[in-house]
Write a protein that binds this DNA or RNA. Structure first.
Length: 553
RNA sequence: GCGCCUGUAGCUCAAUUGGAUAGAGCAACGGACUUCUAAUCCGUAGGCUGGGGGUUCGACUCCCUCCAGGCGCGCCA
């Protein structure tokens, strides 16, 4: 299609004896207004800015050229003021999508724009110092769903969780549990001011007490601290893994920060930066010149006390990602980490990698509403609603959809009351209900001996599908592939969620207006064929979001 | 103070990256079940896209400025 238009433009330029202009990317859009055709392009408007001719003249010419070449496909092609070209396909052409869907099944909508490029999506990566809360949940589904979408769009995707099992926060965690443990044994010691307050710390202390009784009473030596640190961290990590698993989020790899030190990967990277002249000594610490790449200030990589900073290991970590063969790194971070982007981008460039190969998706905060009031949350303060609690309240499907239904980029509200309601307020049920309805119709068809014939479309008269609602459904399904591509390229999983809702809505309308199974056998077969396609597309889209497609509700 | 994100119907959010008449859901009002599931559908009403300026055939979208909210601005992670 693009080529067709391009050729026409070239011919136009030749006729006009215009030497050379770079033709803009030819954008073909599917207009929201049906009166604007099935496909539309604004290319003539764009061209008229470059070459001096009225857009309508250019459009006219392109249309004539295309009509000469492809007389069979279009019902009509029209030029609309001020210079849009609107293409109307013959219904026959639209129908072609149905056998395609039914042949490709779960593969329908998939494409190869990713061209097998290796992408590493890193997300959640929460310190193992406390349970996952709702904000982490949003990051988790955004990352998980985006990975699935990228795969569907032809990228080779790996997912990874970076475990911050090194450094001060972990030390504080160990200390917090130890103090709680000793307090439980009746010792009168003060809880550290910067310690973790949550009840889960006390639970951990109790757990250790049950297992080891008074073995560590009064102790505060290195070995004891180390034991508590390890115990707490591993225990919490196990919970995190379980929570994510029950949320349908799985990782290809769990990467330990500590391993960067045991495998000596941090210091060589710093050395490399030093050699390139991006590192200098000041006030006893070693600084990375991130300002060379647009950061607002330089950053410490080795502290005065000789310890590498978190940033230093993060540089090594990202270097390692590239070394493992990934071309595109996508990190999904909570919005509170946005100040970190520039220094990381700087490091990427200093190491010689392309600036754009490292991309950060900032997930904005979630405000949880209950009874119309906001529920606060902070890990340190210990007051939060955990992901586990949320899953218990609303279930995996609802939670996932609510996190995916809006742009990850905007702060959203999660209304617990709506999420809990099994009513028409709840978009998840709306979509799943459409799927369940289709299943039940197909079942009815089977009972009446109208059986779906997968591959033999010649036995089905698709021309019978001429109702407005039917054509709308078909057009919507034909759009699915593009939605996946856009969603992947723009890194916006929520586009799938919106699409899903719209498709479900079209189906519900159709359902109310027309009977699929009737006395007319041929018509029933054609309509069954149609809704079978809808079923497949709904299922494929739901799969991308990690949401169940129930056959009965 | 500086930086990033956000501001669209009473509420929660969209708007195909600069396109055609700014759209959905909820809430409000009025309708539709002898039917393949009413967890559904149809209709009515609701807007100076935070304010102001600019760029052009065309702006919610880009630029400038102001206002409001969120989040950052450690030799923490």
């Amino acid at each position: 299609m693009q080529q067709l238009i391009r050729d026409s433009i070239l011919k136009y330029l030749k006729n006009k004896e215009i030497d050379f202009v770079s033709i803009p990317v030819i954008m073909l859009t599917t207009p929201k207004n049906p009166a604007h055709g099935h496909l539309s392009t604004n290319i003539a408007l764009q061209l008229s800015a470059i070459i001096s001719d009225a857009p309508s003249n250019i459009a006219q010419f392109i249309v004539q050229e295309i009509e000469k070449k492809k007389p069979g496909i279009f019902d009509k092609i029209e030029v609309a003021s001020p210079g849009f070209i609107n293409f109307y396909f013959k219904n026959d052409v639209l129908y072609n999508i149905l056998p395609e869907i039914i042949t490709k099944k779960s593969q329908f909508g998939h494409s190869n724009i990713g061209q097998g490029e290796k992408v590493l999506v890193e997300f959640v990566s929460v310190n193992p110092t406390g349970p996952l809360h709702i904000g982490h949940g949003k990051c988790a589904v955004v990352g998980d769903s985006l990975s699935k979408i990228l795969k569907a769009a032809g990228y080779e995707v790996s997912t990874e969780y970076y475990i911050n099992d090194h450094g001060k926060q972990i030390d504080i965690l160990g200390e917090s549990v130890l103090v709680r443990y000793r307090q439980l044994l009746g010792e009168d010691i003060e809880f550290p001011a910067n310690g973790y307050q949550g009840n889960y710390i006390v639970d951990l202390a109790k757990e250790i007490m049950n297992e080891y009784q008074e073995q560590f009473k009064g102790k505060n030596d290195q070995d004891t601290i180390h034991f508590f640190k390890d115990y707490a961290q591993q225990r919490i990590l196990k919970d995190i893994k379980e929570d994510l698993f029950s949320f349908g989020v799985q990782f290809d790899n769990w990467f330990s920060e500590q391993s960067l030190y045991t495998e000596n990967k941090v210091h060589p990277v710093i050395e490399r930066l030093k050699k390139e002249g991006f590192v200098y000594l000041n006030k006893g610490a070693l600084w990375f010149k991130s300002t060379d790449f647009g950061d607002e200030k330089d950053r410490v990589v080795i502290r005065k006390d000789g310890e590498a900073t978190y940033f230093a290991s993060d540089i090594a970590y990202h270097d390692d990602k590239y070394k493992r063969g990934f071309n595109i790194l996508i990190d999904i971070w909570g919005a509170d980490h946005h100040g970190y982007i520039n220094r990381m981008k700087a490091a990427i460039q200093a190491l010689g990698y392309a600036k754009d190969s490292f991309q950060v998706l900032l997930v904005q905060f979630v405000t949880l509403l209950q009874g119309g009031k906001a529920v606060g949350m902070s890990t340190r303060g210990g007051q939060f609603i955990t992901l586990k609690d949320l899953l218990k309240e609303v279930g995996k499907d609802v939670a996932r959809y609510f996190f995916l239904m809006y742009s990850h980029d905007s702060h959203t509200e999660f209304d617990l009351d709506i999420a809990k309601s099994q009513s028409m307020d709840n978009p998840v049920f709306y979509i799943q209900y459409a799927y369940a309805r289709i299943c039940s119709i197909i079942e009815k068809g089977r009972s009446k001996n109208i059986i779906l014939i997968d591959q033999k479309k010649e036995q089905i008269d698709l021309k019978l599908l001429d109702k407005k609602e039917e054509l709308e459904l078909i057009k919507k399904m034909a759009y699915f592939k593009e939605v996946i591509e856009r969603s992947a390229l723009q890194r916006k999983p929520y586009l799938i969620a919106s699409y899903l809702y719209e498709l479900a809505s079209l189906f519900h309308k159709y359902y109310t207006e027309y009977k699929v199974i009737s006395e007319d056998r041929e018509l029933s077969e054609a309509r069954l064929y149609l809704i079978y396609a809808v079923k497949i597309v709904l299922e494929n889209a739901l799969t991308l979001l990690g949401i169940q497609a129930p056959e009965k509700m």
